[in-house]
Each structure stands twice: as C-alpha cells, then as structure tokens.
C-alpha cells in the first residue's frame, strides 16, 4: 500500500470506523513513515480544534398546523397516493376517453397504422376499391340529367293543368258575375219602367185636375 492509501485509513481511524486489521496496518505504517505520522498528528489536532465549535440554538419556533385543503386539493392529494400501475391505468382510460371524444379512428391495414381524428363524427369510409370510376361518374351524371328533365316535364304538365283549371274557374266566375249583372240590370230597368209609368199616371192626373180647373174658371166668366 502507498501513503495515499493510508490517508483513507487515517480518516477511518480518526473517526473510529476502522477495523482492527486496518488499524494494525496503519499503526505499522505510521511507525515507519515520518511524513504520514506527522500529517496524521496535525489532522487530529485540526479535528480536535473543530470540535470546540459547539452547536447553537436557532432561537426560533417552527410550528406546522393542518390547513383544511380544498376539495380539488384533496382529490389531487389522493391521486398522489395512487401507485404507479393505478396511475398508468387511469391515464390510459383518460386517453381512450379523449380519443373517443375526438372520434379517433385507428386502423391497421397492410402492415400500416392509420390514424384519424375529428371533432364531428364522419360517415362510413368507402374502401378505395369501391370508389366510383369515371364511367360510373358519367352514368351518374346522365341519370341526374334524366331525373332533372323528368322533374321539369312533370312540373310543366302540372303547370298547364293548373292554368287550365284556373282559367275554367275564372270563366265560371265571369259567367256568374255576368248573370248577376244582367239580373241587377233587368231589375233596375223594371224599376225605372214602373217609376216612369207611375210618374206619367201622376202627370195625367195632375193635367186632368188642371183642365177641370180651367174649365170651371171659364164657366164662371
């Protein structure tokens, strides 16, 4: 052993942590090595000097009191008490819940994962093999044209029928109105005739009375 190695044993011996074998070895070394002996003596003196520095009182009183925690604090405190597997399980459940909330879809096909998430639920996905080809699209477009043309024809026919019915109703209304007018007119003419004849009769009576009066006057002269 070198002197450096004995330095560690000196520390063990200085603080009574040395084994009897090591102590014997250290003593043997110190008997022969003046440098180490002198060094050990000074270190012991220094340690002795340090021991004279006594502890002092902090002169302050720390007192901890229990503060009622809030409901949330209690909840988070209880979370801290959970063990790791429980925490992992809860985290996984929370993660799955969030994924379901965002309509997440994870698929595995052809050795690849696909991930999709959206706020709103999307319709069923059409497989690529079933996607419409150009011919299918043309057929669909043609069918759409025919459908729209049929709808327009039907609409025109319905318009014609509705117009005819409307004209017929209008004609009936006009005829009814005309008859009504004629009736009113005939009544008016009849009333005029009756009134005229009555006036003529009254005039005749007035003229007869006048003639009688004139005749009486002539006779009196």
């Amino acid at each position: 052993m070198r002197c450096d190695d004995y330095r560690l044993l000196m520390m063990d011996d200085l603080y009574d942590e040395i084994s009897s074998e090591d102590k014997e070895r250290l003593n043997d070394h110190l008997k022969t090595c003046t440098g180490c002996r002198e060094k050990y003596r000074t270190l012991r003196a220094t340690a002795g000097r340090l021991k004279q520095w006594e502890d002092i009182e902090p002169h302050m009183k720390l007192t901890f009191v229990h503060q009622p925690a809030s409901r949330f604090a209690d909840f988070f405190q209880s979370l801290k008490a959970w063990k790791l597997p429980t925490r992992l399980a809860v985290c996984a459940a929370a993660g799955l819940f969030l994924l379901s909330l965002f309509n997440t879809r994870i698929q595995y096909a052809n050795g690849q994962f696909s991930f999709q998430a959206s706020l709103f639920k999307s319709g069923p996905e059409i497989p690529a093999a079933q996607l419409a080809t150009k011919t299918d699209l043309d057929d669909l477009r043609r069918e759409n044209y025919q459908m729209v043309a049929t709808i327009l024809d039907e609409y025109a026919k319905r318009n014609k029928i509705e117009t005819a019915v409307m004209f017929e109703k209008f004609y009936d209304e006009l005829e009814k109105q005309r008859k009504n007018d004629l009736y009113v007119l005939s009544n008016a003419v009849e009333q005029i005739q009756t009134g005229t004849s009555r006036r003529l009769e009254q005039t005749d009576r007035t003229l007869g009375s006048l003639i009688q009066y004139v005749n009486l006057q002539n006779r009196g002269r």
Binding site: R41, T42, L43, R44, A45, T46, R49
Partner: peptide
C-alpha cells in the same frame, strides 16, 4: 482528508493550530 489538511493550513496561518490531541502510538 484534504479538507482537514486545508483547514490545518488556514488555522496554522492564524495561529490556531495548537495540537490539543497528540497522536499516541
């Protein structure tokens, strides 16, 4: 070890290196 050695050097400089404890073989 090195800490005590360094302290010894400082205390020696200040005249505080009086050896209260003598090593006895």
């Amino acid at each position: 070890y090195y800490g005590l050695d360094a302290l010894h050097a400082v205390l020696q400089r200040w005249g505080l290196d009086r050896e209260d404890l003598e090593y006895e073989m």
